[in-house]
Simulated assay, not measured.
Amino acid sequence: MDRVLLIDDDVELTTLLKEYLVEEGFDVSTAEDGRAAVGLAISNAVDIVVLDVMMPKMNGIEVLQRIRRSSEVPVLMLTAKGDDADRIAGLNLGADDYVPKPCSPGELAARLRAILRRAAKVAPNAASEVVRAGSLTMRPAGRTVEWRGEPLELTGTEFCLLEVLARDAGRLVSKQEISRRAFGRPLTAFDRRIDVHISSVRQKLGARDDGQPWIQSVRGQGYQLLQDR
């Protein structure tokens, strides 16, 4: 049973979502205060966090920052409809996805399952599979990454995106193909998730000797992971 932590000061909404998710087979705990929720989120007592941006005392962006200092637990942000600034800020800080409020309980459950599937994805019959692209080594079964001989910390979503590019290193991969292979769904218009997560992965990989990023973009087409040897 997947363990979900709902962090939202809207008690009525939280109660509704909790009741629905429990009926869908999730084990749900709740928190109304961001400060109190951080400890729960990083305690390894939950499998995924649903985090509202607008909360008193400590807003969702601050909560996410504190979680990411010590945990890679998947985080789904609840954002105000049309508020691109909060969405982009959350993705840049390591959120795995977002859902605009008000959202239907059914959509939330579907998004949670999709994120959890990505976080647990293992290649069939490949418990010891290793994906290599130059100095990049990825082990899908254990969700571990080494870059130039050193461990590289990635969120679950970042891992999925980089794995797609690593499997086709040196080839331009369209954003539509990336979305289907990494997220299991087609890319929708004005969806910037891939761009924001790729930007984060670029920062973690650092720059090439010529100052260019390891992940190259072709405007309007897609992304390509370069190899160093």
Rank of each mutant, 00 (worst) to 15 (best):
N125G: 06
P102M: 01
P124Q: 02
C103A: 11
P124A: 10
L108P: 02
A119E: 13
K101H: 04
P124I: 09
A95D: 14
V122S: 14
V122T: 10
A114E: 10
L93I: 10
G106N: 11
G90L: 02
A120F: 00
A110D: 05
D97R: 15
A109F: 04
S104I: 00
A120E: 06
A109W: 08
N125P: 02
A123D: 12
P124L: 11
L91Y: 04
V99T: 12
I115E: 02
E107P: 01
N92P: 06
G106S: 13
A109S: 15
S104C: 06
A110L: 14
A120S: 15
A95V: 04
A95G: 09
R118P: 02
L91D: 05
R113Q: 08
L108W: 00
K101L: 12
S104F: 02
G90E: 15
E107G: 03
E107Q: 07
K121E: 15
K101F: 06
P100E: 14
L91N: 00
G106F: 07
L112C: 09
A114H: 04
R113N: 09
A109P: 14
C103M: 07
A110Q: 10
G90Q: 06
Y98M: 08
R118F: 05
A114Q: 10
L93S: 09
L93N: 12
V99G: 02
L112K: 04
L108Y: 04
A109C: 08
Y98A: 10
A120W: 07
R117E: 09
L108V: 10
A119I: 08
L93V: 05
A95F: 08
G106M: 12
A110M: 07
A119C: 09
V122I: 13
K101C: 08
V122P: 04
I115L: 14
E107A: 02
A109K: 07
P105D: 02
K101M: 09
A95N: 10
L116T: 11
Y98L: 12
L93G: 01
A120M: 06
R118M: 05
R113W: 09
L93C: 09
Y98E: 07
G90D: 06
R111L: 00
I115W: 01
Y98P: 13
S104Y: 00
K121G: 11
L108M: 14
P102R: 07
L116S: 11
E107L: 11
G90M: 01
R111F: 02
R117M: 02
E107I: 08
P124S: 10
N92A: 14
R118G: 03
L93T: 10
A110K: 11
I115F: 01
A114D: 10
C103I: 05
A114Y: 07
E107M: 09
G106T: 13
R118E: 05
G94T: 03
G94N: 00
P100M: 06
C103W: 00
G94Q: 00
R117I: 12
P124C: 06
P105W: 01
A120I: 04
K121R: 13
A109D: 05
L116G: 06
